[in-house]
């Protein structure tokens, strides 16, 4: 079954084409890295996947629900970690998760149990009562990932979630999210850092609004390290 399906998405800001005929499918429970340099169109694609913008051309299906025809069912299946931090810094971690749970129609005992489980999954239970302002960058990100899992989404989107984190926190979060995929959640992880992509991951390389390559990361890299392959693919001709 397909977790996330993107078909022929084109999007323009006035005369500038941000995405041009982008198509890819991610099977349920797969980890897909969306790799692209800055300005490749990753954030625009995320805005379309989360329906902050509506794509005039193309089709997006999230866990079998069409985003244009049935946006509420599709969004209910979607967990999102935005590139920008979106925690309310004056609220505790638990209050942040409760607010989010309520936006998804969850309250009372059910919401409390889900919040506990999500925090536990990201090893954030000991920090549940702390104000978000007091957390370091890595813990804030974990809180945001836990929040995105409260409603048990089928698909989790993460837009450059490791920006601004130190190497240890970056590695820990990358590993955590890979484990989520092993548990059955479909993951789309946007990044411009090749060391966050594991060889067995599905990889979509986006450059200048179009897909340059897609397939298993190890196959795309071939004989050379993925980092070198990526640089060679996205080098602008002189």
């Amino acid at each position: 079954m397909t977790g996330l399906s993107v078909k022929d998405i084109t999007y323009r800001y006035g005369a500038k084409t941000a995405l041009d005929g982008v198509s890819f499918d991610i099977p349920q429970g797969a980890f897909c890295a969306l790799l692209g340099p800055n300005g490749a169109g990753k954030s625009t694609l995320f805005s379309l996947l989360t329906r902050l913008f509506v794509a005039p051309v193309g089709q997006i299906d999230i866990a079998g629900h069409n985003l244009a025809r049935d946006p509420r069912a599709a969004l209910a299946k979607l967990g999102i970690v935005f590139q920008q931090p979106t925690l309310d810094l004056d609220l505790s971690v638990r209050q942040n998760l409760s607010y989010f749970a309520a936006l998804h129609g969850l309250s009372g005992r059910d919401a409390r149990m889900r919040i506990e489980a999500a925090l536990d999954r990201l090893d954030m239970l000991p920090r549940a009562q702390e104000k978000a302002r007091g957390l370091n960058g890595g813990h804030r990100r974990r809180a945001e990932i836990a929040r995105a899992l409260v409603h048990a989404p089928a698909v989790l989107l993460l837009d450059e979630p490791t920006v601004g984190l130190d190497a240890a926190a970056r590695a820990a979060i990358t590993e955590h999210v890979h484990h989520l995929a092993q548990d059955g959640t479909t993951i789309l992880w946007a990044t411009h850092l090749t060391d966050e992509v594991w060889p067995e991951d599905q990889l979509v390389v986006l450059h200048q609004a179009a897909i340059l390559a897609q397939g298993a990361a190890a196959d795309i890299a071939g004989e050379i390290p993925l980092h070198d392959r990526f640089l060679a693919m996205t080098a602008t001709p002189a």
Binding site: T50, R51, L52, P71, R72, A73, A74, L75, A76, L78, I80, F82, Q84, P85, T86, D88, F100, L103, H104, G105
Partner: peptide, 12 residues
């Protein structure tokens, strides 16, 4: 700050 995105992507 981005928190508007959280609101607008809720399934309502």
């Amino acid at each position: 700050m981005g928190s508007m995105k959280l609101l607008l992507t809720a399934p309502l």
